[in-house]
C-alpha cells in the first residue's frame, strides 16, 4: 500500500500529509516546552527576592551556540531552496553545513556541561563558601581554580558581589588575584557538591530545559544527516517527495532554533 499525498497536496487541506503531520507535532512541542517555561517562571518568581542565581553560566559559549543555530537555520532553508532550484550540489553543501553546525552545538554544550559538573561548591566550617573548578584532589586537600569566596549565610546572590570586589581589588593591586588557585584542607570543609542539577533550583531547570533541547538537536541532526547521506538517493527517483522531506525536517530544525532564541536570554543573560 502506498502512502497517499507524499508529493501532491490533499484537496481538503491544500497540503501534503507530512506537512500537516509536522505542524501537529510542533504544536505538541510548543506545549511541552511551554510547560517547562511555566515551571521556570514559577520557580523564578518563587525565589527569595534577589536570590535567583545569575552569572553562573558563561555567556560566551551560549552566544556562540546561538550564532551556530542561526547559521544552521539559514543553511537548512537554503538546502530546501536549492532543491527547488534543481541544484543538488548546493543542497549537499548547505545541508552538510547544517550537520556540522549541529555537531558543533552539541560539542560546545557538552563542554559547558562538563564545566558545570567539575565546578565544586564548598561550604567551610568557618561559614565561608568557596566555588571553583577542581584541579587537584588528595586525601588531605583539594585545589580549586578561579575560586570565588563569600559568606555562605548570604546565599548565592553574594557571589556576583564577591566577583566584582575581587576584580576591583585585583585591578587596584595591578594583579589577578581572582585567578589564583585555592588550596582547601578537607578537615575545613563542612559540605561540598558540584554544580549539577542537584545543586539548586536554577541549575535543575537549566539542565532540564537545555537537556531536552539538546535531545531535539541530536534527533534533528540525525534526520538531517540521513537525508544528506543515504536518504538523498530518493532525489533521483522521487525528487518532489524528497524536497518535501527536506522541508519537513527543516521545519523541525527551525523550531529547535526558535526554542533556543528564548532559552539563551532567560538562562544565560537574565
Amino acid at each position: 500500500m502506498e502512502v497517499p499525498y507524499t508529493d501532491t497536496n490533499r484537496p481538503d487541506t491544500g497540503l501534503y500529509n507530512a506537512k500537516v503531520g509536522i505542524w501537529l507535532f510542533l504544536a505538541s512541542e510548543v506545549m511541552l516546552f511551554g510547560a517547562l517555561f511555566s515551571a521556570y517562571i514559577l520557580l523564578r518568581v518563587g525565589a527569595m527576592p534577589g536570590h535567583w542565581p545569575t552569572g553562573l553560566l558563561d555567556v560566551g559559549p551560549g552566544f556562540v551556540n546561538t550564532l551556530v543555530l542561526i547559521l544552521s537555520s539559514v543553511t537548512v532553508v537554503m538546502a530546501w531552496a536549492s532543491l527547488k532550484l534543481n541544484d543538488f550540489k548546493k543542497f549537499k553543501f548547505y545541508q552538510g553545513i547544517t550537520v556540522i553546525c549541529a555537531l558543533l552545538f552539541v560539542v560546545i554544550k557538552s563542554f559547558e556541561y562538563k564545566s558545570k559538573f567539575t565546578h565544586h561548591d564548598v561550604i567551610l566550617k568557618d561559614g565561608m563558601r568557596v566555588d571553583g573548578h577542581l584541579v587537584e584532589e588528595t586525601d588531605e586537600f583539594i585545589v580549586l581554580s578561579h575560586p570565588v569566596s563569600y559568606p555562605a549565610e548570604k546565599g548565592i546572590r553574594e557571589r556576583a558581589v564577591a566577583i566584582k570586589e575581587a576584580e576591583h581589588h585585583a585591578h587596584e593591586a595591578g594583579g589577578d588575584h581572582h585567578h589564583e588557585d585555592r588550596k582547601i584542607m578537607l578537615d575545613d570543609i563542612e559540605k561540598r557538591t558540584t554544580w549539577g542539577p542537584w545543586a539548586n533550583t536554577y541549575l535543575a531547570i537549566y539542565f532540564t530545559l537545555t537537556g531536552l533541547h539538546a535531545l531535539h538537536v541530536i534527533a534533528g541532526a540525525l534526520v538531517i544527516a540521513y537525508f544528506w547521506g543515504p536518504g538523498s538517493k530518493m532525489w533521483k527517483t522521487h525528487p518532489e517527495q524528497f524536497a518535501n522531506r527536506i522541508e519537513v525536517s527543516g521545519l523541525f530544525w527551525h523550531f529547535v532554533d526558535l526554542v533556543w532564541i528564548f532559552l539563551f536570554p532567560i538562562l544565560y543573560l537574565l
Binding site: 527569595m48 561550604i123 549565610e153 536554577y202
Partner: peptide, 19 residues
C-alpha cells in the same frame, strides 16, 4: 498563579544543603 506561588524555591542556604 504566581500570586499563590511556591515560596522559597531558591533560598540563601541552597547548595549545599547545610546552614
Amino acid at each position: 498563579a504566581s500570586e499563590d506561588k511556591p515560596n522559597y524555591t531558591v533560598a540563601p542556604n541552597d547548595t549545599p544543603a547545610v546552614m
